[in-house]
């Protein structure tokens, strides 16, 4: 074993195979780190997303090999780990960020397994002197783990040259550069807007080591998501119900404000509401108490009542609740 490994206790505790044999048993390293478990969890949690999962796997492999290299005294200081997750809403960025934090922690790149998620409002103040304390507060809370900044481009408002967002960006940059051992930052948002943001903030772009693009889900994937989400809540579609869901998805993706998995979840919530109301009025008309089977089943009519089928947009879930 090398001295480099001996001086890094974080590594030494995780990298026994390297320490004892002197050779690099990557498979053993992988097993011990438990990264495989995280990847499986990711597979369970998220349907599809093959390109994203493969990117995450690549990053995990890179980090693993970096560790092995480090144990042999190869390569320079700590790698930059800051990342950018781009994609439309509902494509799994937050979930993947949680799993990424898990991977970083298991591999010993972060001390704690936590993600602090913020937006512009958490970082930028409204008055002079308010921004630095707010940004620092968020950074301090995230220390040791991952800071996830959603819709990061709102930090930069070129139309207002006195916008306090710039101050937040500068503080962020400083910490991203000087405290790479203490914090990993993940910036997230729509791809096109993030690209504009990076073009205007080259300092930020240069500190991002990994870009992960999250594609929209295919209609088939969305349908599987619908089934998965329903099953998690102990519901299932009957045959007509599944067909209705498929049609619903096909119509919904063409409409504005489509938010991938999130739109599917909202549609399911409304369908559950309609199913409950359907069972309730049936009982009022003297039907027998619904059995377990009927309580679990989402049917075609629970979906087809949606305005999406009438060429209209689905109303917000909050108003549906009233």
């Amino acid at each position: 074993m090398t001295d480099a490994a001996a001086t890094d206790t974080t590594l030494a505790t995780h990298v026994d195979p390297v320490a004892t044999t002197g050779g690099v048993d990557l498979a053993a390293l992988y097993r011990q780190s438990g990264v495989g478990e995280v990847m499986r969890q990711l597979d369970d949690e998220l349907v599809g997303l093959a390109p994203v999962k493969s990117r995450i796997r690549d990053i995990a492999a890179l980090l693993l090999v970096d560790k092995a290299r480090h144990a042999h005294g190869l390569g320079g200081g700590a790698p930059s780990l800051h990342m950018s997750f781009t994609g439309n809403p509902g494509t799994g960025k937050t979930t993947v960020a949680l799993r990424m934090a898990d991977i970083l922690h298991r591999l010993g790149y972060t001390r704690r397994n936590h993600v602090v998620a913020v937006t512009r409002d958490d970082l930028v103040g409204q008055y002079i002197g308010h921004t630095a304390p707010k940004t620092k507060e968020a950074l301090k809370k995230a220390m040791g783990g991952v800071l996830f900044i959603d819709e990061a481009y709102y930090l930069y408002r070129p139309e207002n040259e006195r916008d306090y967002g710039q101050e937040a960006i500068e503080i962020l940059l400083q910490v991203m550069e000087n405290q790479r051992d203490d914090l990993v930052v993940i910036l997230a948002g729509y791809r096109d807007r993030m690209e504009t943001f990076y073009r205007s903030n080259p300092g930020m772009a240069s500190r991002i080591a990994h870009h992960v693009d999250f594609p929209d889900y295919t209609p088939d994937e969305l349908l599987r998501i619908a089934e998965l989400l329903a099953a998690r809540m102990d519901y299932r579609f009957d045959e007509a119900g599944l067909a209705a869901m498929r049609e619903y998805i096909a119509l919904r993706v063409t409409q504005p404000h489509f938010a991938n998995a999130r739109s599917v979840r909202n549609a399911l919530d409304r369908a559950r509401l309609r199913q409950a109301s359907r069972l309730f009025s049936a009982a009022g008309e003297g039907e027998t108490t619904p059995d377990r089977e009927r309580l679990m089943t989402l049917s075609s009519e629970d979906l087809r009542a949606s305005r999406v089928f009438q060429g209209g947009r689905e109303s917000a879930i909050t108003t549906t609740h009233h």
Binding site: R111, H114, L139, K140, K141, M143, G144, Q179, D182, L183
Partner: peptide, 13 residues
């Protein structure tokens, strides 16, 4: 400083 999880934030201050 409330609700911190890692000492690095305090050391910074």
């Amino acid at each position: 400083m409330f609700d911190l999880r890692d000492a690095a934030g305090i050391l910074l201050e």
